[in-house]
Write a protein that binds this DNA or RNA. Sequence first.
DNA 1: CCCATTTTTTGATATAGATCAATTTCTAGA
DNA 2: TCTAGAAATTGATCTATATCAAAAAATGGG
Lengths: 247, 247
Amino acid sequence: MVETGRSLMEAVRERCGRCPGRSVSICNVIEDQDLPALVAESSRVVVQAGRCFIQEGAPAHDFYVLTGGRAKLFSLMPDGRRQIVGFAEVGDFLGLASSESYAFTAEALGEVTLCRFPHSAIDRLVERFPRLHGRLQQEASSELVKMQARLMLLGRKTARERLASFLVEQASPCCAHALKDEHGPLTLSLPMSRTDIADYLGLTIETVSRTFSLFRKEGLISIRGASSVTLLSPGLLSDMAGGIKRS
Amino acid sequence: MVETGRSLMEAVRERCGRCPGRSVSICNVIEDQDLPALVAESSRVVVQAGRCFIQEGAPAHDFYVLTGGRAKLFSLMPDGRRQIVGFAEVGDFLGLASSESYAFTAEALGEVTLCRFPHSAIDRLVERFPRLHGRLQQEASSELVKMQARLMLLGRKTARERLASFLVEQASPCCAHALKDEHGPLTLSLPMSRTDIADYLGLTIETVSRTFSLFRKEGLISIRGASSVTLLSPGLLSDMAGGIKRS
DNA sequence: CCCATTTTTTGATATAGATCAATTTCTAGA
DNA sequence: TCTAGAAATTGATCTATATCAAAAAATGGG
């Protein structure tokens, strides 16, 4: 099925026109006039809450750019132990994990929209738009750096430090500078359950809950209905996340 | 300083002729006749035991291909807590971690030899040898998959499972197939200290030592002088590493 | 709006692994 | 080969977090 130039232009306007991923994903190295090539090589995917769009162990045929919503990425052990290896946000490039088969499962938290690129399509696009090379490399490198920080978190940080790190990480897409300076309260909406947070931080749900309560009693955060958290002292939390004890 | 064609050819013979990394590193997508370009863009580095060749936080100017020996890669917290994020082996591509500054320190375990490529050199080489793109991407992807496995290890595995995973991982470069089948004993020489193993596995040195002793008493391994370990039941250890309990 | 179900919080207790403290075993230099 | 210092092992005890068990709060369908 070949799209006509006309309908392709319409597709570009529809898909990329107001895409929140346009400026933060790998697409940001593509000029507006070249978007049709991207749209022609990819397809839009909508995934409902709780559904998986990448399956651990399945043959890896596609890459994805997340353009709406959030997703959790995890692997399982045979007995059901679960480790969440990351939360994906708008702009993230997924599926890079392996050449043969996916190393993790990706499940939508709320409704998720994606652009799916078959591996062959990425190959063609990279050939046509050389700047994509560097951009993909950059994506992989930044993911690698995040992974190293997570290893430190899981290997060496206490429960308090882990939760503080998580809150600061969730906050940083919003306002990175607010954490350094002693800026005011910062409200986050957490789309993931306590179980998800526990499986991300290598803790149990009870420890996560208790630590949230402790932070609340200490005046570090305030909680509204389990999914809305306000960081009352972002600076203190940021220091705690890094293992720094204030006098 | 421009090398003459003559001395460049000599340098290629000397550097690449018997390089153990030739067939396993990113160099394996470069034809023999193109090696001079690689040699011209890189420099050989020799690092003595215990010395660092990448410093966490330092500006990242170079990439490295490890061509001899082994290295430990780690990050530190302000109070000295340490997490080893990986052990590098012959063929590994290092420095990919970040665009601005290195995210970890790399320290030689024993003498290490490297080929150092400035970022700009890699850019030129990638342009000249397009196959390098895919090879670099592959390197990043495989590292990412390893990282995900390490997250599971640190977040969800027991001390026994962690040490079993470590031993199996150390063994796999040697003989991957010997682990699946019920093949015979497999001797490893571990160039890293118990402290290094502990900081890699998110445990204390005492727990690592105790777990080694337990494995020995259970007939899973035999130990000769702390750095030489023989896996007596690689299959059992492999199952334990994956969280599988045999009847 | 209400009730059944699920999720979260809180409490009591258990335990894997950490910490503190000796020994023992290696290793490198004389 | 011997020996001092370092590294590893082993033992005793502690503790942060897990586990088990309710209670409380949130959520969603009718």
